[in-house]
Design a protein around this nucleic acid. Structure first.
Lengths: 327, 327
DNA sequence: GCGCGAAGCGGAAGCGCTTACACATCACGG
DNA sequence: CCGTGATGTGTAAGCGCTTCCGCTTCGCGC
């Protein structure tokens, strides 16, 4: 079923059918005839032919580091909200935290002629920047700040600083359970804020314990267990994510420590698990879904020809719960 | 950059370039010349033009009910393993548990001319079957059994039966925390197995407490809290998923119940959270990733012209952990 | 009555690619 | 020396669509 058959059945030229489908400029009669035929046949134009002809695919590619992540899924939900409303379809490309795959997908998607790309980034190294610079399609970064590129990011430094500062009483032996420094946002900044906030409280640098791992419960558990083994005097664990914090709670329980009396724990993200664990986690609520909406809106603007880079920093909300002592 | 320019630069016709890209049948000389030009220019053929011409897109659509789910993400990983290896790309369509969206995506994907579709299904009603029957592209169902359609599913009945039967000692007041019966696999079958296994132990039907909710920790917590409020004598909670079980553990802790001494709890899935909670969950390990691989392989077979429907039932492995009393 | 702009429509080109077909070349056996 | 099969290459058609262009028709003002 193609446009020729529809044209024949409706007794018009295929140019008219095409106009019917696009801009209008068709008389009421023919419009009705075409509508009837299309209704009867269930005809849907071939998007590949349309794309080939017009160069526009109405597709937006979203590159995600990990499919099974609450933060990512909330961002994607926000992106979808906005994009579907504007007639775009979203295709997801999952890299499973593989930098190579990330760069490769950047190219594959561009070749597949998506109209735009949203990159939910964790690590952004030189190779990424090079690949991004080569890109001819509009794109926005979500989750990291990047100079000269439109991006939506979170106030990771301030959130981590506030959380650290909020720890009540003497935390003379605090630990930070984080991720690789290559992740500027979730890694370097959250750690730096922890260090700065602790130094402001006159905690000596050598008394701070710093561990690095993955974004998983399992990894959080291992990091916390290592800290407890090597430094049983630890009395606070500031974690880069809720998952890591959940793992830390498990390790603390294994070690017979009370939370928050013996050790205080914080996470980041306000994900489902932060409310399910006991005690529930003091954390920062991140507006993930809104950030996705923002990113999509910025992309739409770029698609409409706005070529100036924008930066949007998302706020957060502190949530004081049972894993810390709140005066 | 298109095939014409490459042809000109390499001093051959574009048919030869096309042959170079596809079947071969090109002399060594020209092959080398073309390879050099392509290397220098970074030319990549337009997939839309290829698709338009050949009718094959090398794309497989995967419809998923929920992006943020460990089981789904593991299945998708398995699917990707197999499909990428065979030169296909995977596009994900997330329905967020919306039946309408599911059916709509079935059509959209088909219109986008994907070569095949894998549907990770929860609910399969008449509308789904109708939409599936209309489909002209090969497809396989993952996660549910469907008569006459190639599918890969889990032995939900037996897993749930084994788990229920394994509860040690007198469970004269067991509860089942499940999901809607519209979900044949995770809903109806797991519940039915619970009922059958309990009846085999001579528990009376009216002593079984049956709750239905969502696939979330939150929902599990609410269901368990309701049960505890209305039937404090409950001494077992068989949950349809690990998430629900994790929520149940939270509710039990809130109520001051000991697990497994006062109440035994089981989940299904062996997901990350089942190991992170305390006590860790007795559950069934499902081979999610393998199931994805299976589904992808079956799809590849169908793509190769095998039109007979296949059914594959996946096994599971019982994991007895701290949330039950194991003799 | 005529010119003119707007509305409505069809013809035809062409997006970038594959592939049937025709043709050319070459080695080889009869 | 010619037929033949294998190998290699180019020509051209056409996948399904949009859109420029030019033609017709019609209403309206002069």
């Amino acid at each position: 079923m193609n446009i020729n058959e529809i044209a024949t059945l409706a007794g018009v030229s295929r140019a008219t059918v095409s106009r019917y489908l696009n801009n209008g400029y068709v008389s009421e009669q023919k419009r009705a005839a075409i509508a009837r035929v299309i209704g009867e046949t269930g005809y849907v134009p071939s998007s590949h032919a349309q794309t080939l002809r017009t160069g526009r695919s109405h597709l937006v590619g979203v590159i995600i580091p990990k499919i099974n992540s609450e933060s990512v899924s909330r961002m994607v939900a926000g992106i979808t909200d906005v994009l579907e409303e504007s007639g775009y379809h979203v295709v997801l490309a999952n890299t499973d935290n593989d930098d190579e795959a990330e760069i490769q997908y950047l190219r594959v998607l561009a070749d597949r002629k998506v109209d735009g790309i949203i990159l939910i980034a964790t690590v952004l190294d030189d190779a990424h920047h090079a690949a991004l610079a080569e890109l001819t399609v509009p794109h926005v970064i979500l989750g990291q700040r990047a100079a000269g590129i439109t991006c939506v990011y979170f106030d990771d430094y301030q959130a981590s600083y506030d959380l650290t500062q909020g720890l009540y009483g003497s935390c003379d032996h605090p630990a930070h359970l984080g991720v690789t420094d290559l992740d500027e946002a979730a890694g370097r900044l959250r750690l730096q804020a922890f260090i700065d906030a602790m130094e402001a409280e006159d905690v000596k640098r050598e008394d701070m314990l710093i561990e690095r791992g993955e974004f998983t419960i399992e990894s959080g558990r291992e990091m916390a267990a290592r800290v407890l083994r090597e430094h049983p005097e630890v009395n606070a664990m500031v974690c880069a994510t809720d998952s890591i914090a959940a793992g830390a709670l498990a390790a603390l329980r294994d070690a017979g420590k009370r939370v928050p009396e013996d050790v205080q724990v914080t996470g980041i993200g306000d994900t489902e698990i932060s409310r399910a664990v006991y005690p529930s986690l003091t954390t920062a609520h991140y507006h993930y879904r809104s950030s996705g909406r923002q990113a999509a809106s910025l992309l739409l603007a770029a698609l409409d020809g706005d070529s100036t880079p924008h930066e949007v920093r998302m706020g957060y909300q502190l949530l004081l719960r049972g894993s810390t002592i709140n005066d």
